[in-house]
């Protein structure tokens, strides 16, 4: 299954990059969600995948019974999901504020900080 997941990760990366390069900022956000999913899968798959054996120690035992799923990447992914959500929410708020104050979601038109007219002339004066 690692092979399938590796290819899925590749696909998720490809679509995420394609979406993030779009002019519309909402598409960029969609790409961000896909990218964070892909990244989580990368961590998860790098720890190898063991089917149907959660990382639990049975009651009465001191150590796990037989081969179980790798717990380390799971712990990393779990927090990454929550943080990814925080990042997404923040980006969404940012996008909305940008839309509200600039009236557009086209990232090419968002040029308050770096206006298209050359600021060079002013700087020289």
């Amino acid at each position: 299954m690692e092979i399938v997941v590796s290819i899925l990760i590749g696909l998720l990366f490809a679509t995420a990059v394609y979406l993030m390069l779009a002019r519309n900022f909402l598409r960029f956000l969609f790409g961000l969600i896909l990218l964070s999913n892909a990244a989580n899968l990368v961590i998860f798959a790098a720890g190898r995948m063991t089917e149907g054996a959660p990382a639990l120690i049975p009651y009465g035992a001191l150590t796990p019974d037989g081969e179980i799923a790798n717990a380390l990447p799971q712990a990393l992914v779990l927090t990454a999901i929550v943080i990814g959500f925080g990042l997404f929410a923040f980006a969404l708020v940012l996008a909305f504020q940008a839309y509200r104050s600039l009236g557009t979601l086209d990232s090419d038109e968002m040029r308050v900080a770096e206006p298209r007219e050359e600021i060079a002339g002013e700087a020289r004066e």
């Binding site: 590749g10 995420a16 990059v17 790098a46 720890g47 717990a71």
Partner: peptide, 30 residues
């Protein structure tokens, strides 16, 4: 660009998952 990057990431992941894994930390946690 997305396609190229996707293929590269997939290749890297294929190599990573096919290679050996260091389970020392996991073993300790278990």
């Amino acid at each position: 660009l997305g396609g190229v990057l996707g293929v590269l990431v997939a290749l890297v992941m294929l190599m990573v998952t096919a290679g050996p894994i260091d389970r020392r930390l996991t073993d300790f946690f278990e």
